[in-house]
Write a protein that binds this DNA or RNA. Structure first.
Lengths: 297, 297
DNA sequence: GAGGTTATCTGACTAAAGTCAGACGTTGTG
DNA sequence: CACAACGTCTGACTTTAGTCAGATAACCTC
């Protein structure tokens, strides 16, 4: 849709002219803009390292170090070596820093309030709805899918959240059965945003079988990120991966209480088949041939 | 709605991290970011003056002058005195400048395309719709209403567009009857965006009457700006103005083919009354008492 | 046509942002 | 335990951005 691009660019213009000034809440505090931004970022996280900040804000390491010295000089932040890794330094706000952060937060809040003030309640609701939709879609569009080692901490976090959700949703609960033991040949694909997993999918050769069938495991999308096609994207990604590895067929199992998942599989061209494993939690089984070529960026 | 503010601020965060990079299309051209922005702005307008650019981009006059010298040095822009006012200088792109502008435009387009690429067509449509809504509401929220002298060029442009629209919409056309002659006591309120009128409303004492009734005239909202409450805002503004001047009642006339206008007046608390003037184009007459206090920012 | 205003420009700055090389200690690997 | 890789820091820059005080010419008003 080329019109989407035009609308996006048009909005970009409106945004920089009218909402971009929200950043001005960081001005006039006697600190440089970049320093204020850094302060705000530190306060917006529980605890963070210099590296995280550098990455998040896309700044040079020397630049960040200098700004941190400046904030330390003001008595707003303090740093300490990370006990887990002595190379890293943890950064956090002091009491005064928290106060300065709150001031920034309030300024920003006030500016935002002023911006929407001329609108009626009804219009504000429409605006909030539109922005929430745009927010979700833009975040989903810019998320990167990447393969990680089976024992990767991000993958662990994702599967832990997946199991928690199953436990909540299954009428009789869910027990993964013993601690995680990465199975050989398994691949984990995660989508991360700001370092935290927002979607996960696993792929492994279906054991004791024909070498042409792969199984999709542990498909999960963070509840806050649903409705933006992340599940479908993950599925396409896994299928492409399976195809690259010479598989010609994908199967998966699921539970009938996971309605969205079933709808997703059906939309993606999966067909119901009979039970192919002895997974006690499975109630539905699907397959899809990997004949035709599909694309996934 | 405090949630609107939260959503707006959340979106702001997503935006600066993910869409803000659209500006990076201005980087890596061997020119400073601000210079590229200026070049892009010049090329986005038909012809423009130094003053317009300064105002649009919110820059210091010395800064702009220097950047223009730099662009002239590259052979990308040329300036000439404005024949209408020798103090001003017109700025426009040269052949080479147009080429450089096109390059920037293409980079920006490509970045935007890349951003939305992971989304399905359906999701892109949802995104475009959400952004278009947000765009309209944000623009409407940040537009300023201001009183102008009756002969002001902006007011003239607005009424000219209003008359054109009436001429188009009335089955038998519309003839304003002779050239504009500003009537004594008339006030014009305009909403402008980037210097062009997007809404207009007039107010005058109702002639030969009681000195307590004001008449709203020439209510008009640019078609591209409808649906964001600008009409209602204008009406509230005019009512506040009338109240300030001691009027206790407002009347207005309209034509029954202007359905949105009639709906607007009814929503705003206007009641139909009998004909109070001999306007040949009027088919409906309304009044509203200015008893209770309402607010308009 | 005198006097104030407006638009643009130059010179002379300061502050902020960003870059790069290298030092130093910590950690993971073979 | 040697060695490469990593995370952070300092020093020594360069580039950009932005500011302010005039100078100059054109315009507007009375």
């Amino acid at each position: 849709m080329s019109t989407t691009i035009a609308v996006l660019r048009g909005f970009n213009r409106t945004y920089t002219q009218r909402i971009g000034v929200l950043d001005e809440s960081f001005l006039g505090t006697g600190r440089a803009l970049a320093v204020s931004r850094l302060l705000f970022e530190i306060g917006s996280r529980h605890h963070t390292t210099v590296r995280d900040l550098r990455e998040q804000l896309g700044l040079d390491s020397g630049h960040v170090a200098r700004m941190l010295r400046s904030l330390e000089g003001e008595g707003l932040v303090e740093t300490a070596p990370d006990p887990d890794d002595g190379r890293r330094r943890l950064v956090r706000l002091t009491q005064d820093g928290r106060k300065a952060w709150r001031e920034l937060d309030e300024r920003s809040e006030a500016l935002a309030a002023q911006l929407v003030d001329p609108l009626t309640t009804r219009q504000q609701e429409r605006l909030a709805e539109a922005l929430a939709t745009a927010d979700l879609l833009v975040r989903a569009a810019t998320v990167q899918l990447r393969e990680v080692a089976p024992g990767d901490p991000v993958a662990r976090e994702a599967t832990a959240r997946y199991f928690d959700e199953l436990d909540e949703r299954f009428p009789a609960g869910f027990d993964p059965g013993g601690p995680e033991e990465p199975q050989p040949g398994t691949t984990s694909v995660v989508a991360t945003s700001d370092g935290r997993p927002v979607a996960h999918g696993g792929l492994r050769p279906l054991p004791d079988l024909d070498h042409v069938t792969a199984e999709v495991k542990r498909m999960w999308v963070d509840p806050g990120w649903r409705g933006a096609g992340l599940g479908a994207r993950m599925l396409r990604h896994l299928e492409a991966l399976a195809r690259d590895r010479g598989f010609t067929r994908v199967v998966l199992d699921t539970n009938d209480s996971l309605l969205e998942a079933i709808a997703l599989y059906e939309r993606a061209g999966y067909r119901r088949i009979g039970r192919y494993n002895d997974n006690p939690y499975a109630r539905a089984w699907f397959e899809k041939g990997l004949g035709q070529i599909q694309t996934e960026g």
